[in-house]
């Protein structure tokens, strides 16, 4: 019900203001979150926690939730997830820890899960935990997240470790370049968490309006192909906020996205039997009973 309201709002209001259409209501897709196994009862906002492996993501998670967490598996999959919650201001936030990945291009099961959650669950905020000492590598993931959603807060973690290695990161410069809030933290010693919470709540409630940086593709043919597809997608799916990203995924032959376009329910999560196969064992062969 809530989601439908959102949709009409967005169509009526001009596109650039689509997000501002309803400043204080949650942006998440409740139906899809339920399919992803997230119980949203008693929670106002859902926050996803993404990041590369070994960036102290779980430390941030523990620092934010204390010990109020539980672990389980993603529906039908063997990847563990931790879930927890916290209160800030007058709202209750549900925090979902996504698997640590280098990329979101769905090469591995972990990447697919993280990608699906951000894309279909449409969390109110996605916090990307970044290792300050390995900024370049980590920004790769950040840029990919920014392609999907602009409700992002960057948690620039491990700044103490970076300082020890004589690396200093200008967080304001970074925030300006990326177009989203950047909060330096040392999660291990609870430093910067207050600021992180404030940034999360501002993005969740729509107070912060982000204009995220989008990657420039240098390949000339690619640019043409993308813009041609984008106009077609925007025509067919005016409510989709990330047409450019959808175009790229279509060009890459991403089956999940192709299916969503085919059925006309871009933005809807449809779990198929194939995805339940934990190890990615060849599905065509399994289904038809062939000997490999």
């Amino acid at each position: 019900m809530e989601k439908d309201l959102n949709k009409t709002n967005q169509v009526e209001i001009s596109e650039s203001q689509a997000q501002a259409g309803c400043a204080s209501c949650p942006a998440h897709n409740a139906a899809n979150l339920q399919k992803l196994g997230v119980d949203m009862e008693n929670w106002d906002f859902v926050v996803a926690l993404a990041g590369n492996p070994n960036t102290g993501k779980s430390t941030v998670f523990n620092a934010l939730t204390g010990l109020h967490q539980h672990t389980g598996n993603w529906p039908g999959k063997t990847v563990t997830r931790a879930e927890g919650g916290f209160d800030y201001g007058e709202n209750r936030y549900k925090l979902v820890d996504l698997p640590g990945t280098y990329s979101l291009l769905a090469t591995s099961l972990d990447e697919e899960i993280a990608r699906d959650f951000i894309l279909f669950g449409q969390p109110d905020v996605t916090v990307v935990v970044v290792d300050a000492a390995r900024l370049e590598r980590n920004l790769n993931l950040v840029l990919q997240v920014l392609e999907i959603t602009n409700r992002v807060v960057i948690c620039l973690n491990l700044v103490d470790e970076a300082e020890r290695h004589n690396i200093s990161v200008d967080d304001r410069r970074l925030a300006r370049d990326l177009g989203v809030p950047v909060v330096p933290t040392v999660a291990r010693y609870d430093e910067g968490l207050e600021e992180l919470l404030a940034a999360i709540s501002e993005v969740a409630s729509g107070k912060t309006q982000a204009t995220p940086y989008h990657v420039k593709y240098t390949h000339p043919k690619l640019d043409q192909a993308v813009s041609k597809l984008v106009s077609q997608i925007q025509e067919a799916f005016p409510q989709v906020p990330n047409a450019r990203w959808v175009a790229l995924r279509l060009l890459d032959g991403d089956e999940r996205i192709i299916k969503a376009v085919e059925k006309g329910d871009l933005g809807e999560l449809t779990y198929t039997v194939e995805n339940l196969d934990g190890l990615g064992v060849d599905t065509v062969a399994l289904k038809s009973g062939f000997r490999l």
Partner: peptide, 17 residues
């Protein structure tokens, strides 16, 4: 052994190579 539908599905899952 692959039917036309199997082949289509296979092609889709490989991103239509």
């Amino acid at each position: 052994k692959l039917s036309v539908e199997d082949t289509e599905r296979l092609s889709a899952s490989l991103g239509h190579p």
